[in-house]
Design a protein around this nucleic acid. Structure first.
Length: 504
RNA sequence: GGAGCCAUAGCCAAGUGGUAAGGCAAUGGUCUGCAAAACCAUCAUUCCCCGGUUCAAAUCCGGGUGGCUCCUCCA
């Protein structure tokens, strides 16, 4: 197994990764609170950790991947009340939507997907433990974690309680039923119209942070290997999880390794509803295809903030009529290169047959990918290796000069397999090339408003002209099609066409 | 006010002490009836600025400048 180094947010550096059990990884990632359709920010985080999970699997680890669904929460209750829908039903509906959307981006289903609503007993048990050992206290039907009892508080976010107190004084004063400003709710007393469960403290529901502590304990144990989530969750969510779990099970427990992914920004500014730059998963998938977003994500390192170029499209009178996802369109063009290459390799292999076992030349893609991923999941470096491998394959496909015939055949076939194997480690290149290319053309036809019937009529006319060696007429038709934004691809098997895509 | 992150070519983006991966775009070439695709070649004496440490710095240290995030719901 490749020795692995991962960045740890707690130690603030790359460190050797040593799982509790050799060869196995227990990993917990904070999942969504489903109260509205998933947006691109959800997708980015899900893709980042799915990539980490895939990479660890590729490196030979047996990964148990737990990603929760927070289906009991203020925002859900609010949305349900507004819609006149049962909050659990609403959460279940959006959770299904979320999973369907993530699948479009190649995100695998978690090994376990626990929900708050099915872990109430474990949550109450954990809160009781904290109350019993003096880490938490009841106040008017609420239960709060007493932050003063947990000395290491702030270690992950690098803030002291004094610093936080200074920040808090600017805005909000101490709530009257809490001992201290930093204390946070483990259990909230039910208000009218809210879902509730019976507890030793009366009817109520869990606070925001406690579910992750209960779920990690239930599914991965007191101590586990990796805890992940978006950078924004470091404070207070992850900080509070640490306090709860270590308050209950001891300060040497909980996550051995913290991983946080960078944020998605738009023109250097974070995404937020008030700025109007929140884009839905469906909108993205329709515009550029789900794999383009995936490809765009793995082109960047998971810890880097990632900037996303979006351009508003306006009609001649200035009315906004849509948006163009420039960065994703570029990623889709890049992706097309790989699928065109795979298609050519597939055709070659189908035609040339399998050359069997034996030597190959320049097939170190898998080794390079392992080395890159073992260094804190350096997916951009893997992308570079993928490009080199695809270039090599294209070179061999174009000409086999000076190379043993069998070696050439074996190498091309091996490169095809390796591109897919390494692609799988990043969650890309798993589709059928023909399907991808067909769908991509469909998207471009829609985006550029190409008249397909007209293109096909001109194509037929040109084929007839070329059959009689009337090249002048054929070239005239080519020119006409170019004017329509269509490129022709003459091959020995006939003429195919594609929509010209030059970022305009 | 407190905590932290980022700055690498026209653009995107790796690289955290040993002399700048990869991609897009661009230019020239090969191939092609002409094209497209593909391939080949060229493309950062230099990594925001100013000091310092070192035989050696994009990488470490100090000081600036610019951008961003968290401390409030946020992925």
């Amino acid at each position: 197994m490749t020795p692995l180094r991962l960045h740890d947010s707690m130690r603030r550096q790359k460190v050797a990764f040593e799982p509790l059990q050799p060869g196995k990884v227990g990993m917990y990632v904070c999942g969504p609170t489903p109260y509205a359709p998933a947006h691109i920010g959800h997708a980015y985080s899900a893709i980042s950790f799915d990539t980490i999970r895939r990479a660890l699997t590729f490196l030979g680890y047996d990964v148990t991947y737990v990603r929760n669904i927070t289906d009991v929460e203020d925002k859900i209750i609010k949305a349900a009340n507004e819609a006149g829908e049962d909050s659990m039903a609403l959460a279940a509906r959006f959770a299904d939507d979320y999973n369907r959307d993530m699948a479009r981006f190649g995100v695998m289903a978690p090994t376990v997907e626990p929900r708050v609503s099915t872990h109430i007993a474990q949550i109450i048990e954990l809160i009781q433990k904290l109350v019993d050992n003096g880490s938490a206290y009841e106040s008017e039907g609420d239960v709060y974690f007493d932050v003063e009892t947990f000395k290491p508080y702030g270690a992950l976010s690098g803030q002291s309680l004094d610093d936080l107190r200074a920040g808090a004084s600017d805005r909000e004063l101490v709530e009257k039923n809490k001992k201290s400003f930093a204390d946070f709710a483990l259990w909230k007393a039910a208000k009218p119209g809210e879902p509730f469960w019976e507890s030793p403290w009366g009817k109520g529901r869990p606070g925001w942070h406690i579910e992750c502590s209960a779920m990690t304990h239930t599914h991965l144990g007191d101590t586990f290997d990796i805890h992940g989530g978006g950078k924004d969750l470091i404070f207070p969510h992850h900080e509070n999880e640490i306090a709860q779990s270590q308050g209950a099970y001891g300060t040497s427990t909980f996550a051995r390794h913290w991983m946080h992914n960078g944020f998605l920004n738009f023109g250097g500014v974070k995404m937020s509803k008030s700025l109007g730059n929140v884009f839905g998963c469906g909108q993205i998938a329709e515009a550029v295809g789900g794999e383009a977003l995936r490809f765009f994500c793995v082109k960047h390192h998971y810890r880097s903030p990632i900037d996303f170029e979006v351009e508003e499209v306006r009609s001649p009178d200035g009315t906004p009529i849509g948006v163009r996802f420039r960065s994703l369109e570029a990623a889709d063009r890049d992706l097309e290169y790989f699928y065109v290459t795979l298609q050519k390799i597939d055709a070659f292999v189908a035609q040339g047959g399998d050359a069997g076992e034996g030597p190959t030349q320049g097939t170190d893609l898998v080794a390079k990918a392992k080395e890159a991923l073992a260094d804190d999941i350096n997916s951009p470096k893997v992308m570079a290796a993928l490009h080199e491998a695809a270039t090599h394959a294209n070179k061999l496909l174009a000409e086999g000069k000076g190379m043993d015939k069998q070696v050439r055949r074996r190498t091309i076939a091996q490169l095809g397999r390796d591109l897919r194997t390494v692609g799988n480690a990043l969650g890309i290149l798993q589709g059928d090339p023909r399907t991808y290319l067909h769908e991509r053309r469909g998207r471009l036809v829609a985006r550029k408003g190409v008249d397909v019937a007209k293109v096909e009529a001109l194509l037929a006319e040109r084929a007839a002209a070329r059959a009689t060696k009337d090249f002048a007429r054929g070239d005239a038709i080519r020119g006409e099609l170019t004017g329509l934004g269509v490129e022709l691809l003459d091959t020995p098997q006939g003429t195919d066409w594609r929509v010209h895509d030059d970022a305009s």
